[in-house]
Each structure stands twice: as C-alpha cells, then as structure tokens.
C-alpha cells in the first residue's frame, strides 16, 4: 500500500465485505423466522444487525482513516462521487415503485373496482379509500366513529415538517459554505442545526403516527390508503433516520477536525443524501398528504 498522491488507490484484501454479507444473511434469515413466528428469529436479526453495525464502524472507519491520511487522489474521489450518485438514483427508483403503486391505485384500479355495481354494490372507489371491505373514510380532521377512518390532513404536522426539512436543506448548505470558506464554526453550527431539525422531524412524524393509530383509526391495515400512506411515509422516515445518523457522524468528524475545503467527499455524500430525502418528502407532501 502506497500513499503517493498520483496513484489510484487499490485497497488491500479486506475481510469486511464477506462478514457484512454474513450479517446480512443472518438479518434476512431472522426476519423470515420472525415473520413466521419462530422464536429464534429476533435473535438472528439481533446478531445480523450487530454484525452489520460493527462492520460499518470498522469499514467506514478504515475508509475515513485512509481519506484523512491522504491516500485518495482526485480520481478516487470521483469514483466515490459516481458511486454515491448512482446509489441515490437507486433509492429514487425504490421510492418510484411505491409512488407508482399510489398513482395506479388512485387513478385506475380503485375507480375500476368501484365502476361496476355488480362487483361491489354501493362502492364508488373515490380516494381516500380503504376498499369495499375496509373502513369508511370521513373527511380529514373529523373524529372517526366505528368502522371509519380519517385520512391524514396536510396542513398540520405535515406542513410544519415540510418547513423543517426545507430549512434543514438550507442549514446543511450553509454548513457546506462554511467548510468551503474554512469557517469551522459555521460548518459545525450548520451541521448541528441540521441534525436538530432532522430529529425534530422524526419526533413529529412519530407523534403523527401515534395520532393516526390512536385517534384517526388509520393504520397500516386500513386498506390501500393505509398501506400506501404508511409504506411511503415509513420508508421516508427510515431514510430520514439514516440520514440523521449520517449527519451525526459527519458532525462528529467535523468536530474532530476532519475535512478540508478541497477534500470532503464524506460531507458532500451525506449532504446529497439529505437533499434526496428532502425532495422525496416534497413528493410525499404533495401526493400523499395534500392532493
């Protein structure tokens, strides 16, 4: 292993990937067993998660060490950038599958089910719907009675959350400007604010879920409305959680003195990811909550 700057860095053989794969296997197997009520399931999942988390710490730790010791030249940096960009694109396509399902159900299939009175008499398929056999929707903001659910309105917590995420996009950009100007205080303050806004978002989202389950009669099982609502917002919330953890790592690294104005791929990767969850949220706000 050489550290000369003109060379493309080729890492030594590494045990991390195969151990991570084994962790993934344990996690998947545990999840299968859990879903089928086998008591060993959670233990396998726990072991798998522990392996993956430990491996991420070691693997990323090694990469951070290599990066800070100047092992990576500009070309390696570009490889990382392409890698992260295409990873985010794959995430976009993952969300596209669920958005596609939402549009298809709303625009086509729910109306088709409702169109023929022979099939489900009295069901018209208007959105939001929990289906002909599901709960009956009442207008948002009303307290649902028995056999009813109320969809999530847009102008309460979701609107506040939109503001929070948009502001966090601004604070992370402000932090980036600080890094480019070598203003460490601005970098750290900006990142800290972003982390705080991310955590506020998650807390409000959790509050909203509790509200949905306890007061609106809206759960994952509330027909196709509940399924699309919770799967889209749930996967988004999971991504915000991951993004917040990534921002916390970056904040810690910034405090430890990592990153230079001309060498901070780690920061930018997380910032890109954060903007990505931001944009997904805008799609959610418009198509899941508002329209």
């Amino acid at each position: 292993m050489s550290t000369a700057n003109s060379h493309y860095y080729l890492p030594n053989p590494s045990p991390w990937p195969i151990i991570t794969s084994a962790g993934l296997f344990a996690l998947a197997l545990g999840f299968i067993l859990l879903m089928n009520n086998v008591s060993a399931g959670p233990w396998f999942m726990l072991a798998g998660t522990a392996i993956i988390v430990y491996m991420m710490i070691r693997w990323f730790g090694q990469v951070i060490g290599e990066s800070e010791s100047g092992t990576y030249n500009a070309q390696v940096d570009r490889s990382f950038r392409w890698g992260m960009a295409w990873f985010i694109f794959s995430e976009v396509m993952f969300f596209a599958a669920f958005f596609g399902a939402l549009f298809y159900v709303r625009q086509f299939s729910a109306q088709w089910i409702g169109a023929d009175d022979l099939l489900w008499p009295g069901y018209d398929g208007t959105w939001p719907t929990a289906g002909p056999k599901g709960l009956i929707p009442v207008p948002a903001g009303t307290i649902p009675g028995a056999n009813q659910f109320s969809p999530m309105g847009a102008w309460g917590i979701p609107a506040i959350n939109t503001l929070i995420l948009l502001s966090s996009g601004a604070t992370v950009t402000w932090a980036h400007w600080g890094l480019l100007k070598d203003n460490r205080a601005q970098l750290i303050t900006g990142l800290f604010l972003t982390v705080a806004l991310g955590m506020t978002f998650i807390a409000l989202q959790a509050f909203e879920y509790v509200h949905a389950y306890t007061e609106l009669g809206l759960t994952l099982k509330t027909g196709v409305y509940g399924a699309t609502f919770f799967m889209l917002t749930g996967f988004h919330g999971f991504h915000v959680t991951m993004g917040t953890i990534m921002l916390m790592v970056i904040l810690g690294r910034a405090i430890a003195g990592h990153f230079r104005a001309d060498h901070h791929f780690g920061f930018e990767a997380v910032a890109w990811y954060w903007h990505f969850v931001d944009v997904v949220w805008l799609g959610l706000f418009i198509f899941v909550y508002w329209l």
Partner: peptide
C-alpha cells in the same frame, strides 16, 4: 430496475405478514 423489484417484493412481504392491501381488491388494492 432492481430497486423497483425490491419495491414489489417489499409490498408482497407486507401483504403477506403486516396486513397491507396492495394486492387485495377487498382493501382497495389490485
């Protein structure tokens, strides 16, 4: 394409075990 398959597979898993109705007409799915 692969993430879209992952989405489809995820919906199958939740329909199987977590009570969603993506593919069940009684719940408004298809």
């Amino acid at each position: 394409a692969m993430p879209v398959l992952a989405g489809a597979v995820t919906m199958l898993i939740t329909d199987r075990h977590f009570g969603t109705h993506f593919f069940d007409a009684a719940g408004g799915g298809d």
